[in-house]
């Protein structure tokens, strides 16, 4: 066999396995009511609530404040799906023995992880589309002016939060209470970062805490791209902070990743 033929022979099953696993992950995700509700539906519900709460005439950075509420919830949704949802699912699967069991099948570990990440991304992509549609219908918010830049922004954010979510999953030892732990991190972060609406009126202390959190910079990036129609590259500081958090998460994940249950 030529080198090229060998490469094709190896690549084909990997592609087939990837598609197979991606479908499996989607089935597993949507079949779980808890996941579908808390991870997918919850940010949409919050949009209905917070969009009604923030008046129709308020303004933020020269645009209607409801636009900013939508941008914040896109940020929260990204962290909720890629960070919290991924972390909780990984802990549950590790502790139930699914990860360990899969290791003894011919499914390559990398294929499994990539399929899980892409599956998470699909969920968040659908959620983002849902948020923009719902905002348009309920509150008359505009669609993103530069879809390409927005997609790039969401990919960058998802990658950073997925790395942090994986690292967090490996720091949690047991399935019990894993969602409480993750939400204990996520909800204050979302609040302090502007995920639940602009933080302009917050005390200085809270804003200072918010200034180190990755979600603050991700919301800033979404604001620039969505509210002001800027390219994502116009925010080098936000990109750098996100990349820093993402790399830290990646390094931790690679160092601590384990397939076997740790609790008990």
């Amino acid at each position: 066999m030529s080198a090229e033929a060998v490469r094709i022979a190896i690549r084909r099953p990997v592609r087939r396995l990837f598609v197979h696993q991606l479908r499996a992950e989607q089935l597993v995700f949507w079949r779980s009511r808890e996941a579908a509700f808390f991870i997918f539906l919850f940010p949409l519900l919050l949009l209905v609530l917070l969009g009604s709460l923030y008046g129709g005439h308020g303004r933020f950075q020269h645009v209607p404040v409801r636009w900013a509420v939508l941008a914040g919830l896109v940020g929260y949704g990204c962290a909720n799906t890629s960070f919290a949802g991924l972390a909780i699912q990984l802990v549950l699967r590790r502790e139930s023995g699914v990860l360990k069991r899969l290791r003894s099948t011919p499914l390559p570990p990398a294929t499994y992880i990539v399929a899980l990440l892409v599956s998470t991304l699909i969920v968040f992509g659908l959620q983002a589309i849902g948020l923009f549609l719902l905002g348009r219908v309920l509150f008359g918010t505009p669609f993103p002016p530069d879809v390409g830049s927005l997609v790039a922004t969401l990919l960058i954010g998802s990658a950073a939060f997925a790395a942090l979510g994986t690292a967090t999953a490996m720091a949690i030892r047991s399935a019990e209470g894993s969602s409480a732990v993750v939400n204990f991190v996520l909800l204050p972060m979302a609040f302090l970062s502007g995920g639940f609406g602009p933080t302009k009126g917050y005390p200085a202390v809270l804003r200072a805490i918010g200034d180190v959190l990755p979600l603050t910079y991700f919301v800033r990036l979404v604001n620039a791209v969505y509210l002001h129609g800027q390219g994502f590259w116009t925010q080098p500081e936000a990109l750098a902070v996100l990349a820093g958090w993402g790399l830290a998460g990646l390094v931790l994940s690679v160092r601590t990743f384990g397939w076997e249950p740790r609790g008990r």
Partner: peptide, 22 residues
């Protein structure tokens, strides 16, 4: 000790594992 995906059916679980093999 291992518990597979609780919300999938017996057939779906078998089909997922079947898909891993040539």
């Amino acid at each position: 000790q291992s518990e597979m995906w609780p919300n999938l059916t017996v057939r779906e679980t078998h089909a997922i594992f079947a898909g891993y093999y040539r």
